[in-house]
Design a protein around this nucleic acid. Structure first.
Length: 301
DNA sequence: ATCCAGGCCCGAT
DNA sequence: ATCGGGCATGGA
């Protein structure tokens, strides 16, 4: 019934969930060693939700072996050997070894494309706690109740179909502000481009090239380079994506450029993709974490 | 109170 | 092509 992951080094759920790529999860971290209050996590993917407890030997998934293999193994990208990727990245830039060592076990999740599209449209000019609040609210309002885990009612994120009839004012009522019209456009896009949204986990790899997919996403009002890159990386597992945000700008201006260079986001994205190639997305995640920690310390002085 | 948050659109150069 | 103002909301 339960599936046990032994290798905690290959997977760090806490770091992965807090890395800014996912906004719908639950987590309870206890600082005590009380056996009755182990750390636990709730992962959500489409109509699935699973309780994961942290045991001495590894993470215990409270679901069937079949569900684990079919859903969570995939969701957590466990089929990829991150050590190999890490080695490639360190070979390209040895300075990232610190960031990798501090963030070993972070994985790029394979989340639902439509959820990523809506989530990252919402994310613009918002802080992470706000984003979490907004996406959880829309799930409660328009998603489907899945199950209750440890007292938490878990809802699936609404499908495009479930948001089909929402108007701008409906989204404004949910406090999405000026993003409301973008969301209407995104839902319309999703309903018109069903082939770009997987219908089952099996057809995850949409049969379309990176460039074409990006072009398609950019056609949505409210989706720019950054949002498109995030959707492609976290929703379509396009690991050549290299999203540039304020944090990435700061860290890249320290590691690779200078403020005076006045590099544009486009310049930086091209640079990162060229430097890290197929590992750009994962490298970006390490850089991002590096920036969140190291730069914060540098600015403190 | 003012500022700004993992941006993007749009109109003016 | 590039620049800057505006945009909703809420937390610091």
């Amino acid at each position: 019934m339960y599936h046990l992951i032994i290798e905690k080094t290959d997977l760090d759920l806490k770091k992965t969930l807090m890395s800014g790529q996912v906004f719908r999860y639950e987590m309870d971290i206890n600082s005590t060693n009380d056996l009755e209050s182990r750390n636990y996590y709730i992962l959500i993917y489409r109509e699935y939700a699973v309780l994961v407890t942290e045991e001495e030997a590894g993470y215990l998934f409270h679901c069937s072996d079949t569900e684990f293999k079919r859903i969570w193994y995939h969701y957590l990208d466990l089929g990829r050997d991150y050590e190999t990727v890490n080695n490639r990245i360190v070979r390209i830039d040895p300075r990232l070894e610190i960031a990798i060592n501090n963030n070993r076990g972070i994985r790029i999740l394979r989340q639902d494309p439509f959820e990523m599209l809506i989530t990252f449209i919402i994310s613009q000019s918002k802080a992470i706690p706000q984003i979490r609040l907004l996406v959880n609210n829309i799930a409660k309002s328009y998603g489907t109740y899945t199950k209750t885990i440890r007292g938490e009612d878990i809802f699936s994120f609404p499908t495009a179909k479930q948001l089909e009839h929402l108007r701008e004012e409906d989204f404004r009522m949910l406090k999405f502000g000026y993003r409301a019209s973008y969301l209407v456009a995104a839902v319309k896009w999703a309903l018109e481009e069903p082939s770009l949204l997987m219908t089952s986990i099996d057809d995850y790899m949409v049969n379309i090239g990176d460039e074409q997919l990006k072009k398609n996403l950019l056609s949505i009002k409210g989706v720019g380079d950054k949002v498109a890159a995030c959707v492609m990386l976290f929703g379509y597992a396009r690991h050549k994506s290299f999203p540039i945000d304020v944090w990435m700008r700061r860290i890249m201006n320290v590691l690779y450029f200078h403020e005076e260079d006045k590099k544009t986001d486009k310049d930086m994205e091209a640079f990162g993709r060229c430097l890290f190639g197929e590992d750009a997305g994962i490298a970006q995640q390490y850089l991002f974490e590096y920036g969140r920690v190291e730069l914060k310390l540098m600015n403190k002085k």
